[in-house]
Simulated scan of single mutants.
Amino acid sequence: MEHSLSTSHHTERHDCSRNNPRETENTHFNLLPLAIDMHHGFFLPMHNKLPDIFIITFRGVELKNYFLSIVPHIESPDIKYSTSKDAMLPAEEVTKWSESLEKLLATQCGQDAFREFLKSEFSDENIEFWLACEDYKKTQADCLHGKAEKIYKEFVQNDATKQVNIDFYTRKDIAKKAQDPTPSSFDEAQKHVYILMERDSYPRFLKSTFYRNLLDKVDCNSLK
């Protein structure tokens, strides 16, 4: 079930510090068509003098993480949370979300808020996978195989539409377990994704204008 496509594009050494500023600025954007084509299995070089830093593995997750690391994060102004939900949220609950990721994900409203934030970072596959695993563990034995296959195809296999960032060995292990699934088949991968969200996305969520605005709204509602 596993198929991995890895390609390295070797380039001559090129000192970025000597580049014309305009040329350096455009380097990242010239790589984009190359990266997209490589993700779909085609090689279309767009620049013949890329810095050594661009010798990377061309696979969906690695590419997305790479581009997120070189492009300054800009929080989307389009993140919205239902006004009606704001009115119903207790200020105490929203405040507790800052105590731990566990408390944030303990309620439906917390899950919805975190999902909206992750969508702005193009990483909502993480919470979608985590929630799918939570649901999977509650599944009756005779339905495990169907759900395991669905989770594998959607989040784990190499061409998955919502592929999560897990290591090769975990991915390979899940491929085997999905053939004869048990309630714990995805536990290791779920734990890995949880830690990833806890260390990476969750701290940014707490510092985001999205969360601060939500806190302001529920505080104002509590004073009415």
Rank of each mutant, 00 (worst) to 15 (best):
T170R: 02
P72K: 08
A91T: 08
F67C: 05
Y66E: 01
I70P: 10
L118G: 00
N65P: 00
I74D: 13
K172F: 03
D216C: 02
V71T: 15
S82K: 12
T170F: 00
Y66M: 09
K162F: 09
N213F: 07
S123T: 14
F29R: 09
H10T: 03
M46Q: 15
R18C: 09
M1E: 12
S185G: 05
L89Q: 08
A178G: 00
P90Q: 10
S82C: 08
K191L: 10
L215V: 05
I74W: 03
F114D: 10
Q108A: 14
A35Y: 02
D173N: 14
D142H: 12
R59P: 00
T161R: 13
M1Q: 15
P203F: 03
W130L: 07
S76E: 08
M38I: 00
Y211H: 13
P72N: 02
P33F: 04
E154A: 12
R18S: 15
A113C: 13
M38V: 02
Y66A: 04
N126A: 00
L196S: 06
A175K: 06
A178Y: 00
K217F: 01
K64H: 05
F114L: 13
L63K: 01
A113P: 08
K162L: 10
D180Q: 14
K153H: 14
R199T: 15
K138H: 07
G110Y: 04
N20D: 15
G110F: 06
P45H: 06
T161C: 11
N26T: 03
P33E: 04
D135V: 00
I70M: 07
E149I: 08
E92R: 09
H9R: 12
P181I: 05
L215W: 02
R212D: 08
K217R: 14
L50G: 03
D159L: 09
H73K: 04
N65T: 01
D216K: 11
H73D: 02
E121N: 10
W130H: 10
C133N: 05
L89K: 01
K96V: 03
N19E: 12
R212C: 01
F58Q: 07
T27V: 15
Y202R: 04
R199A: 11
L105W: 04
S69W: 01
S201M: 12
I151F: 14
L44E: 15
S184A: 11
L34A: 06
E25D: 10
V218R: 03
E2D: 12
N213Q: 14
T83Q: 12
R13C: 05
I195Q: 15
I74L: 11
I174L: 15
I36D: 07
E121A: 09
R115P: 00
E125T: 01
A141D: 13
F117K: 01
